[in-house]
Simulated scan of single mutants.
Amino acid sequence: MFFSIIIPLYNRPQEINELLYTLTRQTYMQFEVLVIEDGSTLDARQIVESYAGKLDIRYFYKENEGQGFTRNFGFTHARGDYFIVFDSDCLIPKQYLEKVRNYLFEHELDAYGGPDAAHKSFTPVQKAISYAMTSPFTTGGIRGNKEHIGQFHPRSFNMGLSREVWEKTGGFILTRLGEDIEYSIRIHQSGFKIGLIPEAHVYHKRRTSFGQFYKQLHFFGRARINIYKHFPAELKAVHFFPAIFTLGLATVLLMHAIYLPLAYLGDALFSIYFLLIFFHALLQNKSLKVAFLSVIAAFTQLVAYGFGFIQDFFKRVVFK
């Protein structure tokens, strides 16, 4: 099996350098790499070309269109039997492609997704953000877990699809705001088989500060409403949790001004919830600092997603 690895890139030359280095260390080397610069002002041409003797690699520069259409551009130039999409802020374990190849030969998936994890080199903030996005105590628990709710939807930071899927579906029709979930749903509806490959994890850096993380998760909350506008049945009860959390937090703050007994009850419930997150993160990361930061990351994740969800729910669903 020959893989085509598609990596959209926008103003992140250092990230692509780290990602490409991990690809040189793969135990299975039957693959090409396509790096598509999406109208960047800080291009990575020299960095990508420095890997010419180490990888079967090609570099493209195009006008800015967003990550969805940039991946389509990569698909049209790919030579592989199977396409793999990574975000530029990922590090790839050296046995990743070998594990994917072996799994696909055994299970014959038309498309797949894999989970993400925190690398030991990540900063405490990055480890905390990774925890928040994968914890069972936050909405991140449904992303890449073996026990997932409903149909599994691969996410584009770690996603693969066969050439046949690309040719029959035409690729992404959205370029932002939940484009990977929308595409996964259409792949399902086209009759293709999608699955999770639990062993095919990547180390996903995500954001390096809570401010950046807030902006990203606010965008994700809005994206969920965008998916709803295309596929109403895909809006599940779990997707309302961050909005309920955010409204509950606002209610508790209001109760402190008008009815203290109810406010104290709310304080107790939120305290128990965040203590569970703290000790679970401590158990996973063996670090008091990461555990404390994980509470902040979880709070940031839920409030940001909740505000984004509420904003577009009223704007696009209630008031249309």
Rank of each mutant, 00 (worst) to 15 (best):
I7P: 00
L9Y: 04
Y10V: 05
Y10N: 09
Y10K: 14
N11T: 09
E15L: 04
E15I: 00
L19Q: 05
Q26G: 05
Y28M: 03
Y28G: 00
M29V: 01
E32I: 05
L34K: 04
V35P: 00
D38V: 01
G39H: 13
L42K: 12
A44C: 03
Q46A: 07
G53C: 04
G53I: 15
D56Y: 00
Y59N: 11
K62D: 05
T70P: 01
R71F: 08
F75I: 01
T76D: 13
H77F: 04
H77I: 00
A78W: 00
R79A: 13
R79Y: 12
R79F: 09
Y82I: 06
F83E: 03
S88D: 13
D89K: 01
Y96P: 01
K99G: 04
R101N: 12
N102Y: 11
Y103L: 02
E106A: 12
G114A: 02
D116H: 15
D116V: 00
A117E: 13
P124L: 10
P124E: 11
Q126S: 06
A132V: 05
F137H: 09
I142R: 11
R143W: 14
G144E: 11
G144A: 11
N145Q: 06
N145F: 10
K146A: 13
H148C: 06
H153P: 02
S156Q: 01
S156A: 13
N158P: 06
N158V: 04
S162E: 08
V165E: 13
E167D: 12
G170L: 11
G171T: 03
F172L: 07
R176T: 15
R176D: 14
R186W: 06
I187S: 15
I187K: 11
H188I: 04
G191F: 03
P198E: 15
V202Y: 04
H204T: 07
Y214T: 00
Q216N: 10
Q216W: 14
F219Y: 15
F220I: 14
A223T: 05
I225A: 10
N226F: 02
Y228C: 09
F231N: 02
A233K: 14
E234A: 02
L235G: 13
A237N: 01
F240A: 08
F241W: 14
F241P: 07
F241V: 15
A243M: 10
F245L: 06
F245A: 04
L249D: 09
A250Q: 14
V252L: 12
L253K: 10
L253P: 10
H256A: 12
I258C: 10
P261Q: 05
L262M: 11
L262Y: 07
A263G: 11
A263D: 08
F270G: 02
S271D: 08
L276D: 15
A281F: 08
Q284E: 08
L288P: 15
I296L: 03
A297Q: 02
A297V: 01
T300Y: 06
G306E: 09
Q311W: 11
D312Y: 15
K315P: 05
V318F: 15
